[in-house]
Simulated assay, not measured.
Amino acid sequence: MPEFGELLHGWRDRLSPADAGFTAMAGRRAPGLRREELAQLAGLSVDYVLRLEQGRATNPSAQVVGSLARALQLSRTERDQLYRSAGLLPPRDGTISAHVPASIQRLAVRLGDVPIGVFTADWTLVWWNAMWCALIGDPSALPVEQRNLARALFGNGPALPALETEHGFDAFEASIVADLKDAVSRYPADARLNRLVRDLRAESEAFARHWVAESAAQHTSEQKTIYHPDVGEIRLDCDVLLAPGADLRMVTYTAATGTTDAGKLDLLRVTRGQPTGSAPQRVQSPGGPM
């Protein structure tokens, strides 16, 4: 089996900069991603990626391997190979996957003008673009376990950005709890999911109330009003798009062309985000997961 660093380098050379969201400039010598670009996408230091490729850093954590697999847009088979080469067991079937397929990443990259966040079945944020950071805040400033929307709503996670929802906050909470109930029915052996539900039922009366409710609450497209520190009140259409087969939720925020809210998004794109075609970036503005 190839060494971890050999796989990392080979797959980095294979990935097109454009598919990862980078603009390839004339005279670019790297056949694929530069080491700095991979580090940026995976949320790691360039020095650490270099040491991994050279075999000077050993025993990367499952979190690091998962981040690298997403950044490199690996298939499930390749992801599992990367885990094994690091001496780790790949994620088990029957548990919630944080793997974001290359096709989903390419789609999100091509929609760079739109704030996009990709969530797993338990509402953990695993991928986002520069416009998401500009609108919501930088998720990379948070520990991984705190990038969960349910924890932000009901538990000890970071507070959500100040927002109002078209159908009311109680309905928003109910829809998230309904999604978690559905996830538990489909992933009964997922330890992280079971711990999340157990913690929130103990910590939050609101969560416990929604959990025992018999009526199902489903997500619908709705408008949300976000109170942004730079541009003030901004009213946007929020859509949750499902990715069948990957069990992911792609959350998008848009505004009708020519409206004041669209102008505010444009301003955020210029002042805090990146123009269309740029890679997912990190801005220093901590915020909640949604």
Results as ranks from 00 to 15, higher is better:
residue 4 F to Q: 00
residue 8 L to V: 05
residue 10 G to V: 06
residue 11 W to G: 04
residue 13 D to T: 11
residue 14 R to K: 13
residue 16 S to D: 15
residue 17 P to F: 11
residue 28 R to F: 12
residue 30 A to D: 12
residue 31 P to E: 03
residue 31 P to S: 07
residue 31 P to T: 06
residue 34 R to W: 14
residue 37 E to F: 01
residue 37 E to W: 00
residue 38 L to D: 07
residue 38 L to N: 02
residue 41 L to K: 00
residue 46 V to N: 11
residue 48 Y to F: 08
residue 49 V to A: 09
residue 50 L to G: 05
residue 52 L to K: 06
residue 55 G to T: 02
residue 56 R to K: 10
residue 57 A to V: 05
residue 57 A to H: 02
residue 63 Q to H: 03
residue 65 V to Y: 08
residue 66 G to E: 12
residue 70 R to C: 08
residue 71 A to E: 02
residue 78 E to F: 00
residue 81 Q to G: 07
residue 81 Q to L: 14
residue 82 L to V: 13
residue 82 L to Y: 12
residue 83 Y to H: 13
residue 89 L to S: 15
residue 93 D to V: 15
residue 94 G to Y: 01
residue 99 H to W: 15
residue 100 V to R: 01
residue 106 R to M: 14
residue 111 L to E: 08
residue 113 D to W: 10
residue 115 P to E: 07
residue 118 V to I: 15
residue 119 F to Y: 15
residue 119 F to P: 10
residue 120 T to N: 05
residue 122 D to S: 09
residue 123 W to V: 13
residue 123 W to Q: 09
residue 123 W to E: 04
residue 128 W to L: 03
residue 130 A to P: 05
residue 136 I to R: 00
residue 138 D to Q: 11
residue 140 S to Q: 09
residue 142 L to S: 15
residue 143 P to I: 00
residue 144 V to C: 01
residue 145 E to R: 09
residue 148 N to A: 07
residue 150 A to P: 03
residue 150 A to L: 07
residue 151 R to C: 10
residue 151 R to G: 06
residue 156 N to R: 13
residue 159 A to K: 07
residue 161 P to F: 05
residue 161 P to S: 10
residue 164 E to I: 08
residue 166 E to F: 01
residue 166 E to Y: 02
residue 174 A to M: 07
residue 175 S to K: 08
residue 182 D to H: 13
residue 182 D to P: 01
residue 183 A to K: 01
residue 184 V to I: 15
residue 190 D to I: 09
residue 198 R to W: 04
residue 201 R to Y: 05
residue 201 R to M: 10
residue 201 R to W: 03
residue 204 S to A: 11
residue 204 S to E: 06
residue 205 E to M: 08
residue 206 A to F: 04
residue 209 R to D: 15
residue 210 H to P: 09
residue 212 V to R: 15
residue 220 T to H: 14
residue 222 E to D: 06
residue 226 I to E: 10
residue 227 Y to P: 05
residue 228 H to R: 03
residue 235 R to W: 10
residue 239 D to Y: 06
residue 242 L to Q: 13
residue 247 D to H: 09
residue 250 M to I: 15
residue 253 Y to V: 00
residue 254 T to A: 11
residue 254 T to D: 00
residue 262 A to S: 04
residue 262 A to Y: 00
residue 264 K to W: 13
residue 264 K to F: 14
residue 268 L to F: 05
residue 272 R to H: 14
residue 278 S to K: 03
residue 278 S to G: 10
residue 281 Q to V: 12
residue 283 V to H: 03
residue 285 S to N: 07
residue 289 P to S: 02
residue 290 M to R: 02
residue 290 M to I: 09
